Every structure is written in C-alpha cells, then in structure tokens.
Simulated assay, not measured.
Amino acid sequence: MIRYVDMFRDRFGVEAICRTLGATASGFLTARGYRAAKSRPRSARAIRDEVLGAEITRLHAENYGVYGVRKMHALMRRHGWLIGRDQTGRIMRTFGLEGARRSRRVFTTRPDPAALRPADLVRRQFRADAPCRLWVSDITYVATWSGFAYVAFVTDVFSRRIVGWSVSASLRTEASPLPALEMAAWSSGGITGLVHHSDRGSNYVSLVYTDRILELGATPSVGSVGDSYDCQSVSARSRNDGVVLAGVF
C-alpha cells in the first residue's frame, strides 16, 4: 500500500489517496501513518535483504542465470553466508530472479489423419544386403540457448551410416526432413530401387516429401506413429550423432 501511494502521490495527493483507500476493501492507511512509515528508519531485515540481494544477483549472473532456489542457497552457504532456503527464495522473488525451468515436452512426430500414407514395406525387418537398398529417416531435437533445434537424418541400414542430415528451427517438411533427403540423394549418386522408411509423422507423409521420394526413383514406406520400436534399432545411433551435429550449430 505504501508503494501504491508513492506511485500516485504527485498526481492525487497523499490525503486523497489514503481517504479513498480507507473507503474500500483494500485496507486502511492514514496520511499520518503513511508519513510515519516513510520517515521510519529502515529495519535490520530490510538492510540485510538488500545486501543479500546484491550478492545473490551477482552470483546468479555469474552462473548464467540458471540457478534456482536450491542451488543458489547451497552456493550462498559455500560463500560463507548464513541464509536459509526460504529466505533465499523470498529474496530471489523480490529481485525478480529465477532458475532455468525444465523444458516443455516436444513432439517431433505429429500424425496427419487426413494424409494418404504409403504401405509399411519393412515391417521392422531392418536388414539390407547392400548400400542404398533401405534407408530410414527420423527427427530428434536439441534444446539450445535460443530455442529448440530439430535434427533430421537419413540412415543407410546396410552401413548404419548417416547419409543425409539437416538442422532447422522448424519442423516443417521443407525446413527439416526434405533437405536431409536431398543431401542423402546427392551424396549417394542415385537411389533407384531403394526403399525409404519413416514413421507416420505429418512431415514425412506430406505430398511434397512423398513425391520427392518417387521423383528420385525410390519407394516410400511408412510405419506407425512415433513407435519406440519402429526404426529404433537403426536410428538409435543416428539420434546420438544428430545431437552431436546439432551441437556444432
């Protein structure tokens, strides 16, 4: 309430504001009480909070602004400050400080019920007797300081090698999986007779992606929606490589 009077005292006057506040359910504050509060010496708690707040702000910035109450409390204790955990949280809230929060869950597989889907030609039999006979595609994501980076990759089942990949800030077909497919086709020099397998994510069953597979002379194959077993035996290593690739960017 004191802060509210400070904000509007020059516009309406202290007496008018206190009189209006006293007539409402917001509470009661007299002009005399306001002036007494303003002239009263600062309490020991307020002075200590200011000192602790300055130190917490400094340490919070030095640790990239990611420490929450628990880690900040432990850090302050390691620096020799006698401070409680609840007190740390209260001061951090007062100074507008908070730690990094757990990232929201990201879904990289978004099925499109209206899309026409190719048949499943693989049925989890991820074996090939030569290169460029069977490819599997997938998308993973990496949390970065500026947001999520989506890593699309194409893996050759025979060699277990990533033959195409791309990194994008978007899950759109043109931004993420399609450049990976183009890279794989270019590096392989031709994929006539190849089977391209993926899950049923909308970016893989889209017309632009399926038509491009057919234009390259390959046959599209689609499994289930984000199934943990579908493509997993081949793409587990590719997921780890994808994280490394994203880290470069």
Rank of each mutant, 00 (worst) to 15 (best):
S221G: 02
S146Y: 10
T57G: 03
F28W: 15
A185Y: 08
D49L: 08
D138G: 01
A31N: 07
M183V: 09
L52P: 00
S238C: 13
Y4S: 04
S43Q: 14
L178D: 08
M76D: 10
L134P: 03
P118F: 11
E55R: 04
E174F: 07
S170V: 05
L116P: 14
A184C: 10
D49C: 12
R93Y: 08
R212Y: 09
V154R: 01
L116I: 13
G53Q: 02
G53V: 03
E182D: 09
S166R: 09
T24L: 12
T210W: 05
T20G: 12
H79S: 11
R77E: 12
R42D: 10
D230N: 06
M7S: 04
G217V: 04
S170F: 10
G193N: 07
E174Y: 03
D129H: 08
W145C: 13
A218P: 01
L21I: 11
A25L: 11
N63W: 06
D138I: 02
S43P: 02
R85F: 07
V244H: 15
Y64T: 02
D129R: 12
E55W: 04
R3K: 08
R127W: 08
L52M: 04
L216P: 01
T192A: 15
A218E: 02
R105S: 10
E215A: 14
S235L: 13
V222K: 01
L216K: 00
G247P: 06
V157N: 01
T24Y: 11
R19H: 07
C231T: 10
S176E: 11
N203E: 15
S198D: 09
W135T: 08
Y64S: 04
R133M: 01
A236C: 02
H60D: 00
P118S: 11
P220T: 03
V208Q: 09
S170K: 06
L121I: 05
R110F: 05
V195K: 00
N203R: 12
I56D: 00
S188E: 14
A180M: 05
M1G: 05
R85I: 06
D199L: 05
R11A: 04
E55Q: 06
R110D: 04
I213V: 03
S166K: 12
S224L: 00
V51C: 05
R45S: 13
F95A: 06
I213Q: 00
M183K: 10
D129V: 12
L245E: 15
A46C: 08
V14M: 02
L116S: 15
R77A: 10
P113K: 03
R3L: 06
V69A: 09
R93E: 07
L97V: 06
S137A: 14
A46R: 15
S202R: 03
V243I: 15
E15D: 06
S187L: 13
P220D: 08
R90D: 07
R78Q: 13
I91Q: 01
D120K: 05
G80K: 10
A119I: 08
R101T: 14
V5E: 07
A74Q: 11
M7V: 04
D156S: 14
S206G: 15
S188Y: 06
S238Q: 11
V234I: 13
G53F: 04
Y34H: 09
P177A: 02
F28K: 15
S235P: 10
M72E: 01
W145S: 13
A16R: 08
I191F: 15
G68K: 03
F249A: 14
D112F: 01
G164K: 05
L134K: 00
L207M: 12
P220W: 13
D86H: 12
Y4L: 09
S137R: 14
R102H: 12
A100T: 13
T24A: 03
